[in-house]
Every structure is written in C-alpha cells, then in structure tokens.
C-alpha cells in the first residue's frame, strides 16, 4: 500500500472511532470534543482526495464555528453534570419503555440508514475517477457555483438569511418578555 492509502485508512478509522465516542462519552463536553475531532478527521479524508478547499472549509465551518458554538452553549449552561469536574451519575440498567428507546430504536434507525446508504451507493452514477479535476480546485469550484449551480447557491443563501432573521426574531422576543417582567 502506498502512503496516501495508509493515510486515508488511518484518518477514516480515527473518524469512525471518534464518531462512536461522540455517542458513548459520558460527559457532554467530551462528546462535543470528540465531534470536533471527527470533523477534523473528515477534513483530513477530504485532503487525501485532493479536495483542498472542502477540507479548509470543513475545518473553518464545522470545527471552527459549529463545534465552537456547541462548546459555548455547554459552557454557559448551569447544570452540574454539564459543568464537569466530578463524574456524572452512573448509568442505570434500563427497563420497560426505556429498553425500546435505548436498544431497539437505535438498531432500527441504524439499519434503515445503512439500507438507504447502500441503495444510494449502488444506484448513483459515479463520475470517472480519472475525471477528477487537478490543480486549482478553488477556481473551478467558484466558477461552477456561479454558473451551473447558481440557483441552488442563491437558494441556500436565502435559506441562511431566513434562518438568521428567524434567530434574531426569537432572541428579540425573549428579551422583550424579560423586560416586561
């Protein structure tokens, strides 16, 4: 195996393991950190495939912004188990409806997701590996976004704007209530 293949497999394995740790970590802060690490490893996978811009954007947005905001939220929350320090309450053995919630539903969801992914992978028309653009991917990406994909691009921008306005509306309403009493 050549070096790039070893790198890819290492990064992919690390990403999978840390994604698993996100759901098994006992402290929510550690879960958030594992999430950030997963994003970082996925950025590494993008790099091994020559998608340099995607990797940088992944680090900037997912690791640098999204996970930071999650950490911010955790740090601002008051709950004792969230604030960390001592170990949280030991997990109890679930009984009754909790068995369905903790064991059966996750398995069903996993199987359904796996089925969808396998279906997509088997049906999708994959582009020829040799057709992968070499060189200045940033330039190619930019011109593709503003020519072939301009409508989806603008739609995504409008969607983000709507989300922004909505967030401001929610925040302002809460403020107002507080002032009233």
């Amino acid at each position: 195996m050549d070096l790039s293949r070893v790198t890819f497999l290492t990064l992919a394995a690390l990403a999978t393991v840390s994604a698993f740790r996100v759901v098994t970590a006992s402290k929510i802060m550690h879960a958030a950190l594992w999430l950030g690490f997963t994003f970082l490893m996925v950025a590494g996978v993008f790099l091994t495939m020559g998608a340099e811009f995607l990797a940088a954007a992944q680090v900037l947005i997912y690791v640098g912004a999204v996970t930071t905001i999650i950490l911010f939220g955790i740090m601002l929350s008051e709950a004792a188990e969230v604030r960390g320090g001592r170990d949280p309450v030991a997990p109890t053995t679930p009984k009754g409806p909790a068995i369905i919630r903790r064991f059966i539903l996750p398995i069903v969801a996993t199987l359904a997701f796996a089925a969808i992914m396998i279906f997509v992978y088997s049906q999708a028309p994959w582009p020829d590996a040799s057709a992968a653009p070499a060189g200045d991917t940033v330039r190619l990406l930019g011109s593709a976004l503003f020519t072939d994909y301009v409508v989806p691009f603008e739609l995504a921008a409008v969607l983000l704007l709507v989300a922004l306005v909505g967030a401001i509306a929610i925040a302002v309403r809460d403020d107002h209530k507080e002032e009233q009493g």
């Binding site: 811009f53 940088a56 954007a57 900037l60 690791v63 640098g64 930071t68 060189g135």
Partner: peptide, 15 residues
C-alpha cells in the same frame, strides 16, 4: 493553492 484558507482554519481552531 488554498494557503490563506489554511491559515484562517488554524486560526479558527485556536479558540
């Protein structure tokens, strides 16, 4: 080719 972005990305991680 994306050097500026890489510097920005590591800057974002410093938080």
């Amino acid at each position: 080719p994306g050097g500026v972005l890489v510097v920005l990305a590591f800057g974002a991680l410093s938080v």
